[in-house]
Design a protein around this nucleic acid. Structure first.
Length: 249
DNA sequence: ACCTATGTTGATAC
DNA sequence: GGTATCAACATAGG
């Protein structure tokens, strides 16, 4: 589930209900989710601290603590942040903070591809997709020969776009996902940026990328929501890709 | 049973 | 350097 809109909602939840609460216990026993830390390392650094601010860039979140280290959080492919919910079965709560008021914050993730670590490295993360200016977008997205969809998925170039959101915005903008980036006109790049920002805004408000018109519709049928034509399916940038061959050129 | 698919990222190879 | 491929993880479904 988690692309930029889902992560922003998770960040907002942390901001709204988890800041200022004193941490008394940390479960960092999952050495894969908490890599490269050894069990107990994150616990030692965070016990007695409180979270003070929650940030996000692309799909990466990080949280400041009062006098302690920064805690990085990533939802991976199936992770969620849950606050003050009873523990999940099957050890799906991969990383847990317990507060002195009896509440808890958990990274709940069936797949274990989520991440919790101290002092995350953000240096290789591109600018946030929702806050990218026109000039920056043109420069970072418009150069090179990769298929445009592959570029949108490249977190070093632009942070926050995942497989579903990429299909949604390319459909909205009427651009073939296989087009080489360098072949896009300035007008097409500007349109793409506009549609991307709109898609992110809508999805964040409505609860996630699956609420997008193209993505939502595709769950029940494989026709274009606009023209009704049969959608095409293929692999672009290594990911399953759907598009409308009649409208996306 | 076995095979495929799945919203992620990172390492590796060309 | 840019791009493509595969592996990491665990679950769901045909």
């Amino acid at each position: 589930m988690p692309e930029l809109p889902e992560v922003e909602r998770a960040r907002a939840v942390i901001e709204a209900v988890a800041l200022g609460r004193r941490i008394v216990t940390v479960d960092d026993a999952d050495t894969y989710v908490c890599r490269p830390h050894a069990p107990g390392e994150i616990a030692a650094a965070l016990t007695g601290r409180a979270l003070t601010r929650a940030y996000r860039r692309g799909k990466t979140m990080w949280v400041d603590t009062d006098g302690g280290p920064v805690l990085g959080l990533h939802l991976g492919m199936a992770g969620r942040i849950v606050v003050d919910e009873p523990p999940a079965p099957n050890r799906w709560d991969r990383f847990v903070l317990e507060f002195d008021d009896g509440g808890r914050l958990a990274l709940r993730d069936k797949r274990r591809l989520g991440r919790a670590l101290l002092e995350p490295d953000l240096s290789r993360l591109g600018p946030d997709a929702a806050r990218m200016g026109r000039e920056t977008f043109r420069a970072r997205i418009g150069a090179g020969r990769a298929p445009i969809k592959a570029r949108l998925l490249d977190q070093h170039a632009i942070a926050g776009v995942g497989n579903l959101l990429a299909d949604e915005v390319l459909w909205r903008a009427g651009i073939d996902p296989r087009r080489p980036t360098g072949d896009l006109s300035t007008a097409e790049l500007d349109r793409l940026r506009r549609d991307l920002r709109a898609s992110v805004r809508d999805a964040t408000r409505q609860g996630g990328v699956h609420t997008g018109r193209f993505i939502r519709d595709r769950r029940v049928q494989t026709h274009c929501p606009r023209c009704g034509g049969e959608l095409a399916k293929g692999v672009v940038g290594g990911r399953t890709t759907w598009w409308c061959p009649a409208e996306q050129a």
